[in-house]
């Protein structure tokens, strides 16, 4: 049996959750509402995060455009995703929503531009 502690982020209350993992069974305590339980379980089973960063732009009116993963990716892949993002250079023009990396690391999630760069 394993016990993990975390803070629920659903509201400003920030309940301190205690999660006990016993094989397949996950128990959440310390939460004051249903959302706390759901949060605790998803954080144990499959924690995911949106990753945001920047990418170099060539011939653009700016040095960088910002990017994000179009959906959440598994938390354990954050640094691998960063490595892929840092390996990319884009050519201007770039528009919000342009796909920068398709299906990053086979996650089914794309990395997309979140700012624009004009060609100069």
């Amino acid at each position: 049996m394993e016990v993990k502690k975390m803070i629920c982020i659903n509201c400003p209350l920030g309940c301190s959750l205690e999660i006990t993992i016993d094989g397949e069974e996950i128990n959440v305590s310390g939460n004051k509402c249903k959302r706390g339980r759901e949060y605790g379980i998803s954080e144990i089973k499959d924690p995911r995060r949106i990753v945001t960063s920047t990418v170099r732009v060539l011939n653009g009116d700016k040095m960088l455009v910002s990017v994000k993963t179009s959906r959440e990716i598994p938390k354990k892949l954050i640094f691998d995703v960063m490595k892929e993002i840092n390996g990319v250079k884009l050519k201007a023009p770039v528009s919000i929503g342009d796909i920068v990396i398709k299906d990053i690391l086979g996650t089914g999630v794309d990395v997309v531009a979140t700012s624009n760069a004009k060609k100069i």
């Binding site: 949106i50 945001t52 960063s53 920047t54 910002s66 994000k68 919000i96 979140t114 700012s115 624009n116």
Partner: peptide, 22 residues
Amino acid sequence: CIHNGFGLHIFGEQLTGPEYAD
């Protein structure tokens, strides 16, 4: 502010700063 989390109240979705501005 390239991180996400902007716009939940106004647009009902989580945008990055540049997207919100845009």
